[in-house]
Amino acid sequence: MSSSPATVGVIGLGAMGHPMAEHLLAARGALVIHARRPQPQLIAAGASWADSPRELASQVDVLLAMLPDLPQLEELLDGEDGLLAGTGDLLILIGSTSSAPGIRALADRLHTQSDGRVRVVDCPVSGGEDGAQAGTLSIMLGGDEEDAERAAEILTACGRPVHLGPLGAGQVAKACNQLVVSATILALGEATVLAERSGLDLDAMWTLLSGGYAGSRLLDSRREKLVTGDDSPSGMAKYMLKDLRFAADIAEATGTSAVLLPTLRHAFDELVAAGLGDRDIAVTRRFVASRDTETH
């Protein structure tokens, strides 16, 4: 069990947050949670339930927020039952993939509203649902050295946390990660269509190529979906639009004339417009196969 005396809470108990909460509970022996829906599994395992964000904040020193983005966190901050109404000193770990400038602006506002009692570390993650369940996530930390060190000690239960720089650095790293992931899954989908239409055995091909330079964690996790065409959701493709927009913001802020990024944004815009955004990112195979060569 963890030696840290901090009381930890989690809000945002979805596909990523729930298994992360399980690992934190197992590592620490205690955890406080709040969610829109009952969480009987976590309660049975020993987690404590808070009836409101205010009650949650009043009971914890460190709060992991695994919500989709900053607007969902903002909704929980203010008001008589909001997080800020119940907090003393609080370190908020923001695990969503979000805008780096947005994270900094929120941290400044929270610092001002709370007279410095509320601090922020950004900690987006990579590894997907399988990594969250296995406790092997890559966790990208941005923030003050002392706060990031505290966050790393806590989040070690969920994977490998690394402090990459000041607040927002985690989001820059996540944008870089998503640039690579989106490019890779689009290439894998397109290659699958080329191979299938050429009569190749897809399973044999990807098994072979996974041992060479085309191999990757992404191919390992999505190989079966690419081969069978099963793109039932695990990591929904539509979320790439948000992630690539944040990457584009960083490119603009750093004066980078990106080559791949505009093409990837266009491709995922088209994919979502085609009604495929709620499918797994392996839907790139279906997307490429469905495109009309005469209109593209």
Rank of each mutant, 00 (worst) to 15 (best):
P5A: 07
P5Y: 11
V10E: 00
V10C: 11
G14A: 09
I33Q: 00
Q39Y: 09
P40A: 09
L42F: 06
A47N: 01
S48D: 13
D51W: 10
P53Y: 12
A57C: 03
Q59M: 08
V60G: 01
L70I: 15
Q72D: 13
D81N: 11
G82Y: 01
G86L: 02
G88Q: 11
D89F: 09
L90M: 14
L90F: 12
I92M: 15
A100R: 02
P101M: 05
D108Q: 10
H111K: 13
T112F: 06
D115E: 15
G116D: 07
V118G: 03
V120D: 02
V121I: 15
C123V: 15
G128D: 05
G135T: 12
L137Q: 01
L141Q: 00
L141S: 01
E145W: 13
E145K: 13
E149Q: 13
E149D: 15
A152H: 05
E153H: 13
H163E: 01
L164Y: 13
G168R: 00
G168Q: 01
G170C: 06
A173W: 02
T184P: 03
I185W: 05
L186W: 06
A187M: 09
T192E: 00
T192C: 04
T192M: 03
L194T: 11
R197K: 12
G199I: 11
L200F: 15
L202I: 11
W206R: 01
G212Q: 08
G212M: 07
A214F: 15
S216G: 07
K225L: 09
V227R: 00
G229T: 11
G229R: 03
S232K: 10
S234I: 13
G235R: 01
K238S: 14
L241R: 08
F246D: 00
A248S: 12
D249V: 14
T254Q: 09
T254K: 15
S257C: 10
S257W: 05
P262G: 09
T263N: 08
T263A: 11
F268K: 02
D269S: 14
D269V: 07
D269F: 12
E270H: 15
L271G: 01
A274E: 14
L276H: 01
D280G: 07
R291I: 11
T293N: 10
T293S: 11
E294A: 14
